[in-house]
């Protein structure tokens, strides 16, 4: 087609510049209003974790109680958590209701020194249900835990962080035997970005989250990045949040139509794609 090579008029070139700025601005605005999808994968990436759950929540101030934990007639514990900073109070309340929980609040940029204990391969169905949102509330999470399904010596270990932008993240794992107290050490793990990085680099930043695996692979290949996968089951928890269950045991093929939940260059030259078979919406 001839138009491919036809030089454009000056005003058409200027229009192109404006339109490109519009696209870039839109992408930036989308990025700002994008669900705060930064998920915490610290626990999930530890070797031997059978099943870990990472969730992201948006913290809130105000007068709402930080958490509410109750037991229903079947002995199942329902915990509504709105702020994970009060880890000690939450641990105590859960223990009162028979949940062997270890909850730690870890300031941003730090992590608990590992290993803290032995991971349990495969959490029994019903012991712990991945969190859902609290109906009618923008923030907070509701979790269901069945204390009767814990075997002796098991603990549910939660590690929570509130990031500078107000996003709180939590990782949940089941451990067998003693759990070492959380000793804070600097966390050098690169933060998941959802993109290939800074626009200032030789190649512009490339947004991966929300796209399909088939869409992002050529771009990552072009950038010479090796790709590793983490398979998750993801489900939206209301508008701003996504609950993610990491499936460490999955070893099947990754479909090109799978959705990228998040991706980042977690070690130089290696790009981690957190992928979900089902679309997020």
């Amino acid at each position: 087609m001839k138009a491919d090579r036809t030089p454009l008029a000056a005003f058409e070139e200027r229009r192109l510049v404006e339109l490109k700025e519009h696209i870039a601005g839109r992408a930036a605005a989308e990025q700002r209003s994008r669900p705060r999808r930064r998920l915490f994968f610290g626990a999930a990436s530890l070797a031997g974790a059978g099943l870990a759950t990472a969730i992201t929540i948006v913290s809130l101030g105000g007068t709402v109680p930080a958490y509410a934990v109750t037991t229903d007639a079947d002995g199942v514990v329902h915990a509504e958590v709105r702020d994970f900073r009060d880890a000690a109070g939450l641990t105590k309340r859960l223990k009162e209701l028979g949940v062997p929980a270890v909850v730690d609040y870890v300031p941003h940029g730090q992590k608990c020194r590992g290993p803290r204990g032995t991971f349990v391969e495969g959490i029994p169905a019903g012991l712990y249900e991945p969190p859902t949102g609290i109906p009618g509330e923008k923030d907070g999470l509701r979790m269901k835990i069945n204390p009767k399904l814990f075997k002796p010596g098991q603990s549910l270990v939660w590690t929570m962080t509130v990031h500078p932008d107000g996003v709180a993240t939590a990782a949940t794992v089941l451990m067998q035997g003693p759990v070492a107290p959380c000793v804070l050490v600097p966390d050098e793990t690169k933060e998941p970005l959802g993109s290939t990085g800074d626009p200032g680099k030789s190649l512009p930043a490339y947004q991966v989250d929300g796209k399909t695996v088939g869409e992002v692979l050529p771009e990552l290949k072009k950038r010479g990045l090796k790709v590793v996968y983490e398979v998750v089951e993801a489900k939206p928890l209301g508008k701003d949040r996504i609950g993610v269950t990491v499936d460490k045991q999955y070893s099947g093929p990754i479909g090109k139509d799978w959705t990228v939940v998040q991706g980042w260059e977690h070690t130089p030259g290696e790009f981690k794609l957190v992928v979900s078979e089902k679309p997020l919406s």
Binding site: A3, D4, T6, L8, E12, R15, L16, K20, I23, A24
Partner: peptide, 19 residues
């Protein structure tokens, strides 16, 4: 993707701006 990526959009635009 084209409509979200300024570079891809440029190619698209150059192809169709005149028509």
């Amino acid at each position: 993707r084209i409509m979200r990526d300024p570079e891809a959009f440029e190619v698209f635009y150059r192809k169709h701006a005149e028509s």
